[in-house]
Design a protein around this nucleic acid. Structure first.
Lengths: 339, 339
DNA sequence: GGTTAGCACTCTAGAGCTTAGAGTGCTAAT
DNA sequence: ATTAGCACTCTAAGCTCTAGAGTGCTAACC
């Protein structure tokens, strides 16, 4: 779309100013504040053109302009300038990945979601880390008391998952050990999402004596994997309150209620991702969920080892500081890769 | 406080009606809706008395009356009638305690918090289950890989807590086993909050060779116990949106932000409890936290085994269905006791 | 003496009106 | 092509007005 250089500059100015002030931007403001060497009248003409082309909107006749969804899209694709985070911000991100503190991947993610939301003032959504995508490393069952054991699953990505399961009364420690050894041998190196079908088949053949116990265990494992799929970490859910466009209580309500439906959020985040630098930006109605059609979602995948195990996203109003959000995401994802 | 029977009836009617409608109640409404055999004029006189005595308030001259904090207090202490939950509701509560589903206490609590909030339409806050109050049963360390192990702590109340810890490279499996065995022997039967000081002393003496590793482990344990203290499960946090008194976005905001500060909530719930049937009701400004001074908190402790391990509370507007909330709480706590 | 009908009075919520101010689009001059 | 000037438009905010709900008081009633 061949926008003239001047139109591009004006569009950029409108977006920049509107993002900052949340007020419709008038020709006067642009002329004064962005010193582009033209009179307001000239800018008015250009803005009228931009409106006709669909990049700008006028809330009402005598108001200034605001970017349309198409306008934001153009801005994000063509006009946005890369920005650098300042050193403190970078440091705070690096801090949560520092070696001494690392125990569990989940802890990092929990912290990352907090940090990202506080750095951006939007809401962070992190999906994963998903076991399914990683390879099986080992499985252990630790007896807790007569009826229960703790099933621990370790993936090669370092993700650890554990769950209490019921053990059959009759099972001796020796038998348990044999089963565990057997399972470990059989499952080694498989990606977790392959295990389901395969395990059951093999179990039937080789371990039919303990089959009830194992199937129960397995059902549990499946459940816990399914849960795993929609595991979403949220940060800064109350940040929307700071956005003037969410002064309306109904809007806030619908968003906050959405935040409780993790399966919907997981779905939102698990859409296939394609985009420059691996970053996907969904603006307004580009999102399918009605609740976020006045929002934008900036997201990207993150890796543990070489495997993509999840998505990290930032949700804010369409009037969002896209460049800053992108910078934060890149910084965080970069750190994940270094793990 | 000698309120005449008639005044009591009228006060009860005002509370009942106001709880239902959220509108100030007029003399006319009471006469008509609660058929008490007096004319509005009589009721007006009584209401004027009740206002003077501090049980009722008038938002403005030509409005009806609403209960004052003192009015609610009197209602709760003297006028409230016990109600029965219907069978479906009882069943749904019993359901989450049914034997087959039980794996971990935490799961039950998570479910309970959801259920309680959906049954009452208020927000549920559950503190615990706290390890500290229960006795140590066993401890195990399961190696995960060369550097890490999973520390599992089991309490006699059935609460299980686990955490990934770093293991020193030099530690052999045999040594680890010996240490674990030793620890188990020494700690058996102690309540968990006694372990801290004692363990360190004894370790110093007997295990000085591995002391670094153990102290690290122990620090971790302490951290995780501290965390444990302010472990709060929330349910139905968006239910406030349904309350007309929270139409104001600022109020909603401050409450929701409070909900993110678990240590404050823990503090709110861990106040000493005394009250009829073990149920404590804090009305409006009886709560210390400013954010909940337009709210009431109904709470009670729950037990696992014989030990009190936590608190379960329901937070709603002062204009709350107290009798229903009390009934739900009693039902839930009763089930905990049966565990 | 307690109860009640009647009535003047009070107060709020909401509707309708008015106006200042911001910003536009058009025209004509540069 | 750009710009100054100006009439025009529209909103947000303040204002007034009014209907309606509910009161408190007085005087009559049982």
């Amino acid at each position: 779309m061949g926008l003239s250089a001047r139109k591009m500059e004006i569009l950029r100015a409108v977006v920049t100013d509107y993002v900052k002030t949340a007020q419709p931007v008038g020709s006067r403001t642009i002329a004064r504040r962005y010193k582009m060497g033209f009179s307001p009248a000239t800018i008015r003409n250009e803005m009228a053109d931009l409106e006709e082309m669909g990049y700008l909107l006028q809330p009402h006749t005598s108001a200034g302009r605001i970017p349309s969804q198409k306008g934001y899209r153009y801005y994000v694709d063509e006009l946005m300038q890369e920005i650098q985070l300042d050193d403190d911000e970078k440091k705070s991100i690096h801090g949560i990945f520092s070696y001494e503190k690392i125990r569990e991947v989940e802890d990092i993610i929990r912290q990352a979601s907090k940090l990202v939301s506080s750095l951006t003032n939007y809401t962070s959504l992190i999906l994963g880390p998903r076991l399914k995508k990683s390879a099986f490393k080992q499985l252990q069952i630790m007896p807790i008391d007569r009826q229960r054991g703790l099933l621990v699953l370790v993936a090669d990505t370092g993700v650890i998952k554990n769950k209490v399961i019921n053990l059959p009364q009759a099972l001796s420690q020796g038998e348990l050990d044999r089963i565990v050894t057997y399972l470990n041998r059989r499952l080694e190196g498989l990606t977790i999402d392959r295990i389901t079908a395969r395990l059951i088949r093999e179990l039937r053949r080789d371990l039919y004596y303990h089959i009830n116990f194992l199937e129960a265990t397995f059902t549990l494992l499946e459940e816990s994997l399914a849960e795993d799929e929609s595991r979403v970490f949220l940060g800064g859910t109350t940040n929307i309150f700071n956005q003037p466009e969410f002064g309306n209580i109904e809007k806030v309500k619908s968003l906050l209620m959405l935040f409780e439906q993790h399966s919907l959020l997981a779905n939102l985040l698990s859409r296939p991702l394609t985009g420059v630098d691996g970053i996907t930006i969904k603006i307004g109605r580009e999102n399918i969920l009605e609740e976020v059609q006045e929002c934008s979602l900036v997201m990207t995948t993150y890796c543990l080892g070489k495997e993509v195990v999840g998505t990290i996203g930032i949700l804010g109003p369409t009037r969002m500081e896209y460049s800053r959000v992108v910078a934060v995401l890149q910084q965080v994802v970069g750190q994940f890769e270094r793990l």
